[in-house]
Amino acid sequence: MPLTHTRTFRVRHYECDAYGHLNNATYLRYMQETAFDASAAAGFGLERYRALGRLWVIHETEIEYRRPLAYNDEVAVTTWVADFGRVRSRRLYEFRRAGTGDLAARAATDWAFLDARSGRPAPIPPELTAAFFPEGAPPPARRDPFPAPPPPPPGVFRVRRRVEWRDVDAAGHVNNANYLAYVGEAGFDVCAAAGWTEARMAAANLGILARRHRLEYRRQAVFGDELEIATWAYALRPASGMRHYAITRVADGEPVARVNTQYVWVDRTTLRPIRIPAEFVHALAANTVAESGGAT
């Protein structure tokens, strides 16, 4: 059995979004902190990795939100390593509301083990594997490739932003959680550009909540980089839909990250799913791919 580790967080007011819920990106920050604690508890804290000349970086993240968390809620984040490959490891997470045990979210990250100097993949040493699997590690599980979205429609929405100092973490590049903040803003921007501002959605008692994200980090972005986020919708259903985000570096056109997000339309008061308004579907038709591959 793998070692498990649990850390409890109390949701702070500034971590909540305008819906009053714990911001999507903050779940990823809780995951990272809990993973660091879990590694240290197994004898591999940051100082030991520095001595080895090695580091972990996140290659891919998946998260599914089950029940929203709000200010002052306590949430227990439990994490464990699912497997080790030659240079990669998969770590799983559960978010449970303290007191009730209700599942608030579940997630997984694929971490890549790198040489700190060269930035190239490095073999995971046996002693590290043994620290997390005292009784022996299972064989590596098969990874499903990142699901490719359908080709973009004519009305691809594009927005640019520059990496700010606050976006960069101690590793010197944009923190993985901030990419969710980037695409979240782009999602509101595309709606506003189609006439559905936040004020209009609030007046209609309409909310759009993320149900799940899948992120793949492809290259590092650093302070001062200008990024372009291209986005389009697809797989529209009566009360839900998918949106793809492709993030590239403007200077050289290199891909930095890509994200697939499932959104659910809800009544803001009850948080129950509702049918997407026909006016909304029409307004974003040029930005939406139909099942047949054409724009809706």
Rank of each mutant, 00 (worst) to 15 (best):
208 I>D: 09
244 H>F: 15
218 R>C: 07
234 Y>I: 03
244 H>Q: 04
151 P>T: 12
237 R>W: 00
228 E>W: 02
208 I>Y: 05
271 L>Q: 14
145 P>I: 11
134 P>N: 08
244 H>R: 11
240 S>I: 10
215 L>M: 14
197 T>Y: 00
169 D>H: 13
260 N>M: 03
269 T>E: 08
263 Y>V: 03
246 A>I: 01
268 R>M: 12
234 Y>E: 06
180 L>S: 04
177 A>T: 10
165 W>Q: 08
236 L>T: 00
246 A>D: 08
258 R>T: 14
270 T>I: 04
219 R>M: 09
140 P>F: 13
216 E>T: 10
226 E>D: 09
135 E>G: 09
221 A>R: 06
177 A>V: 09
233 A>W: 13
259 V>M: 13
133 F>I: 10
163 V>F: 04
161 R>T: 14
152 P>W: 07
190 V>T: 13
262 Q>I: 03
269 T>S: 04
183 V>I: 15
164 E>V: 08
256 V>D: 11
177 A>G: 11
199 A>K: 05
145 P>K: 12
200 R>E: 09
144 D>K: 12
145 P>V: 09
156 V>Y: 11
170 A>E: 15
214 R>T: 09
200 R>H: 08
251 A>T: 11
198 E>H: 06
142 R>H: 07
237 R>F: 04
153 P>I: 12
217 Y>V: 05
244 H>G: 01
228 E>N: 07
163 V>M: 12
243 R>L: 00
266 V>L: 07
271 L>E: 01
201 M>R: 02
232 W>M: 15
136 G>H: 13
186 A>F: 08
138 P>R: 13
196 W>R: 00
242 M>W: 01
202 A>N: 15
205 N>G: 03
187 G>T: 00
225 D>P: 09
159 V>F: 11
195 G>P: 03
161 R>F: 04
205 N>Y: 08
203 A>G: 02
183 V>E: 12
178 N>M: 07
190 V>K: 01
130 A>Y: 02
176 N>H: 15
243 R>T: 00
188 F>C: 06
222 V>S: 02
184 G>D: 10
200 R>A: 05
160 R>P: 08
252 D>F: 03
149 P>T: 09
233 A>R: 15
217 Y>F: 14
141 A>L: 10
154 P>R: 10
183 V>T: 11
222 V>P: 04
230 A>Q: 13
266 V>Y: 02
137 A>P: 05
240 S>C: 01
224 G>A: 11
227 L>R: 04
175 N>L: 12
203 A>Y: 00
212 R>K: 09
238 P>L: 06
219 R>I: 04
265 W>N: 00
263 Y>H: 03
137 A>V: 09
212 R>A: 05
128 L>N: 07
231 T>K: 05
138 P>G: 07
190 V>L: 13
224 G>M: 12
159 V>K: 10
204 A>T: 06
260 N>L: 05
215 L>Q: 08
179 Y>R: 12
167 D>I: 13
131 A>R: 10
157 F>P: 05
205 N>F: 02
132 F>K: 15
159 V>E: 15
175 N>P: 06
169 D>V: 10
